[in-house]
C-alpha cells in the first residue's frame, strides 16, 4: 500500500483503501443482483473481473506512464482513476439495464444480452481510442498523459472483457 501511495502520489493509505472499496462494491452488488435475477454465472464473472481488472490495469498504466513520461500533475492522477472507474461502472450499468429488459421478454435469451452488450462495449472502446487520439495532438503533454492512462486502462479492460465473453459464447456454441 505504502509503495503504491508513494509511486502514484495519491498520498494517503486511506484514499487507496477507499479506491479499492469503490472497485469491490459494484461487482458485489452486481453478483447479488445477478443471483436474484439473471442467474448467469458467466456474465457475473465477466463483470466482476472487469471491475477488478480496470483497477489493476489503471495502477500498472499509471506507474508505467509516470516512469516513461515523467510525473503527472498532482490531482489529475486521481481524475484519471475516476474516469476509468466511471467508464467501467457505466458499462456495468448498461449491462444490468439491458439484462432486466431481456428478462421482461417472454422468452429471454441470455446470449443475446451478452452479444449486444459486448458489441456496445467494443463500440465504447473504439470511440475512446478515436476520441483520445484526436484530442492528444491539441493538448499539453501533461494532459496527454492523463488521456493515455484513461484510454490504455479502459481499452485493455474492455479488450479482456470482450475476449472473455466471446470465449464463453464460443464454448456454449
Amino acid at each position: 500500500m505504502k509503495f503504491l501511495a508513494q509511486n502514484l502520489n495519491i498520498f494517503t493509505i486511506t484514499q487507496l483503501i477507499l479506491m479499492i472499496l469503490i472497485l469491490i462494491i459494484p461487482p458485489i452488488i452486481f453478483l447479488l443482483v445477478n443471483k436474484q435475477t439473471i442467474k448467469n454465472t458467466k456474465v457475473a464473472i465477466v463483470v466482476s473481473l472487469s471491475s477488478i481488472l480496470s483497477a489493476v490495469v489503471y495502477l500498472i498504466s499509471a506507474v508505467v506512464t509516470q516512469r516513461v513520461f515523467g510525473d503527472i500533475n498532482d490531482g489529475l492522477l486521481s481524475t484519471a482513476f475516476a474516469l476509468v472507474v466511471a467508464f467501467n461502472w457505466l458499462n456495468l450499468i448498461h449491462l444490468l439495464l439491458k439484462s432486466f429488459d431481456e428478462l421482461k421478454q417472454k422468452s429471454p435469451d441470455l446470449d443475446h444480452i451478452t452479444r449486444t452488450h459486448f458489441s456496445k462495449t467494443l463500440d465504447l472502446g473504439i470511440i475512446l481510442m478515436i476520441c483520445g487520439f484526436t484530442f492528444i495532438p491539441f493538448v499539453p503533454i501533461g494532459l496527454a498523459k492523463v488521456f493515455i492512462i484513461v484510454i490504455s486502462s479502459s481499452l485493455i479492460t474492455i479488450a479482456l472483457n470482450h475476449l472473455l465473453a466471446r470465449r464463453f459464447i464460443c464454448d456454449e456454441n
Binding site: 474516469l83 467508464f87 457505466l90 439495464l97 465504447l124 470511440i127 476520441c131 493538448v139 494532459l143
Partner: peptide, 30 residues
C-alpha cells in the same frame, strides 16, 4: 477538454439514446 473527451466518448453509446435510464445512471454515477 477532459469533459469534452468524456462526453464524446459516452454520447454515442450511453447518452444519445431514448433510454432515459442510461443518462440518469451516468448523472448518478458522477
Amino acid at each position: 477538454i477532459i469533459e469534452g473527451f468524456v462526453l464524446l466518448s459516452l454520447i454515442k453509446v450511453n447518452l444519445h439514446s431514448d433510454d432515459i435510464r442510461l443518462s440518469f445512471s451516468a448523472a448518478a454515477l458522477f
